[in-house]
Deep mutational scan, measured.
Amino acid sequence: VFVDDHLLEKVLELNAKGEKRLIKTWSRRSTIVPEMVGHTIAVYNGKQHVPVYITENMVGHKLGEFAP
Rank of each mutant, 00 (worst) to 15 (best):
I41H: 00
G18R: 07
L63K: 00
K24H: 12
S27F: 06
L63P: 00
T55G: 12
Q48N: 12
R21W: 06
V1H: 15
L22Q: 07
V59W: 05
V52K: 04
Y44T: 05
E19H: 07
I54D: 00
A67C: 07
E56I: 12
H6K: 14
G46K: 09
S30D: 01
T40D: 06
G38C: 07
G18K: 08
D5E: 15
I54G: 00
Y44E: 02
L7W: 01
R28S: 05
A16H: 08
A16W: 06
Y53A: 10
K10V: 14
G60S: 10
K17C: 11
P68I: 11
E56T: 13
R21L: 12
M58Q: 08
R29G: 09
F66W: 09
N15I: 05
F2C: 15
K20R: 11
V37R: 11
V43C: 06
V1M: 09
V52S: 04
V33D: 02
L63G: 00
M36D: 00
G18H: 07
I32F: 01
E65N: 09
R29C: 15
K17V: 09
A67T: 04
E9K: 15
H49A: 04
S27C: 15
V50F: 11
N57P: 12
N15S: 03
A42M: 05
G18C: 09
A42I: 02
M58W: 04
V11L: 06
R29H: 12
L12H: 10
V37P: 01
N45T: 09
N57F: 11
V50S: 09
E35V: 15
G18Y: 04
H49I: 03
E9Q: 15
V59D: 03
R28Y: 07
E65K: 14
K17M: 10
V52P: 00
V52F: 07
A42L: 06
I23P: 01
K47S: 10
L12Q: 10
K62I: 11
T25N: 02
E9D: 09
E9S: 15
I54W: 00
V52I: 14
F2P: 05
V1I: 14
I54S: 00
A67D: 04
E13Q: 11
V59I: 14
Q48M: 15
S30C: 07
H6T: 14
G64D: 06
A67Y: 03
G38K: 06
K24N: 07
T31Y: 15
D4F: 02
G38R: 07
R29N: 08
I54Y: 00
V3D: 06
I32W: 00
W26I: 05
T55Q: 14
L12P: 01
E35I: 14
K20W: 06
H49F: 13
K20A: 05
F66G: 02
R28Q: 05
I32R: 00
N45F: 10
T25I: 01
N15Y: 02
H39R: 01
E13D: 08
